[in-house]
Simulated scan of single mutants.
Amino acid sequence: MDDVKKLLKEAAIQIGSGGSAGFVEVCIMHPLDLIKTRLQIQSGKVIGKTSDPHLYSGIVDCMKKMYRHEGLTSFWKGIIPPILAETPKRAVKFFTFEQYKRFFLFGSPTPTPLTFSLAGLGAGTTEAILVNPFEVVKVTMQANRATGKELPSTWSVTRQIIKEHGFGLRGLNKGVTATIARNGVFNMVYFGFYHSVKGYFAEYEDPIKEFFRKVGIGFLSGTLGSCINIPFDVAKSRIQGPQPVPGQIKYRSTLGSVMIVYKEEGFRALYKGLLPKVLRLGPGGAIMLVVYDYTHHYLSARFAD
């Protein structure tokens, strides 16, 4: 009975810490996620400056046009789905990561880099399946170029998707394989790198130095994961975003979408949105890990036997 109680308490602490980490990260970093999505769903090449409010030559151009034509609140379009999703999403990610770690020890008394990487892959896959419907709604809202007052609500967008396409692979679960590939690869690198590298740098007794140690390693982990998984992120945005010709589905499968983008737009197009993605998930990765670590430490001390 004591073992069950201890397990439940550990699970509650992991879930609470992960949920807190996700909520803080999404509130701070959402505008960069929106800019990343806008750049990724934009097909073709934009050379030089253009006055078209729907075409962006880069991050700054996107920010200026969104502010000018859609207003300041446009930078938080589609934030409700990730807020609703991030608490359970991050909670599931960090909780399942701890559970997968035990499974992938392969007889070793302590976790190895392979353990951390495979546990991250498992956690990312689990997270992706849970969060994909929220991603579909979020991308649909982020692609909408209406001003704040004209923008449909999260619930109305969700109802429209369900009414027109249902819950299947053309509806709320559209692009689920791309989301699995994106999240699985990211978390494999993210957790694998963070926990493997962290052991090579001794902890500081000074809390400020220790804080920056964790932030630095978390930033590198998020940046590396972002650089490796972005082709899957581009495929996901193309599949879940508006199709080039209404009524015709051009982007269907993950690998098929990657190949279409590569053939029609070149290799660099597979890295569209990389800079805003890194600007978001580099510091975002650091924020999540640091908030998780400190919240986990606080809750563990608060509810210690």
Rank of each mutant, 00 (worst) to 15 (best):
C27G: 09
E10S: 15
R268P: 00
G171R: 05
F193R: 05
R145Y: 12
M141H: 03
N173C: 13
L84G: 11
G148C: 04
I239S: 06
K198N: 13
Q14R: 13
K163F: 06
L105G: 04
I249Q: 13
H165W: 06
A11S: 12
K198W: 00
G175P: 11
L255K: 06
P246Q: 10
V185P: 02
K149D: 11
V278T: 05
T73S: 13
P152D: 04
S253G: 09
T223K: 03
A11Q: 10
K36Q: 13
Y298C: 09
T96P: 06
K36G: 13
G48C: 07
E10T: 00
Y271P: 03
F23I: 14
Y204V: 00
F103S: 00
F191C: 10
F186A: 07
T223N: 05
L224E: 04
R145I: 01
C227H: 02
N144M: 03
T223Y: 06
E135Y: 07
A123H: 07
H69V: 03
K45V: 11
G107S: 08
K138F: 02
T96D: 05
I239H: 07
V136W: 05
G168Q: 07
I129A: 09
E98W: 02
P242I: 04
M288W: 01
L275A: 05
I162Y: 14
D2E: 15
F191W: 08
G78T: 01
K250N: 03
M29A: 11
G120F: 10
G184M: 13
T126E: 01
A21K: 03
F267D: 02
K64L: 12
D305G: 10
S57P: 04
T254Q: 08
L114K: 08
P88I: 09
F134M: 12
T254V: 10
K49A: 14
G120Q: 11
A119G: 05
I180H: 06
M29E: 06
G71V: 07
I41E: 10
I41W: 00
R90E: 13
C27V: 14
I83V: 15
E264G: 05
S74T: 01
P283W: 07
P244K: 11
K9L: 14
A304S: 14
L84E: 05
T177V: 14
V278N: 04
M259E: 12
P207M: 01
V189M: 12
G18S: 06
P109W: 05
T140I: 00
P81L: 08
N187G: 00
V215G: 03
F167T: 11
K236G: 11
S74Q: 04
G48F: 01
V234R: 10
T126W: 00
L255I: 15
F232C: 14
N132D: 09
T158D: 04
V131S: 11
V136K: 07
F211N: 04
F219P: 02
N173R: 09
V197Y: 11
L279D: 02
Q160C: 08
P88N: 09
F219D: 01
S237I: 00
K93L: 14
M1T: 11
L274H: 03
I129F: 13
V258L: 15
T96Q: 06
S57M: 04
L274I: 14
S57N: 14
S226W: 09
F267P: 03
R238V: 06
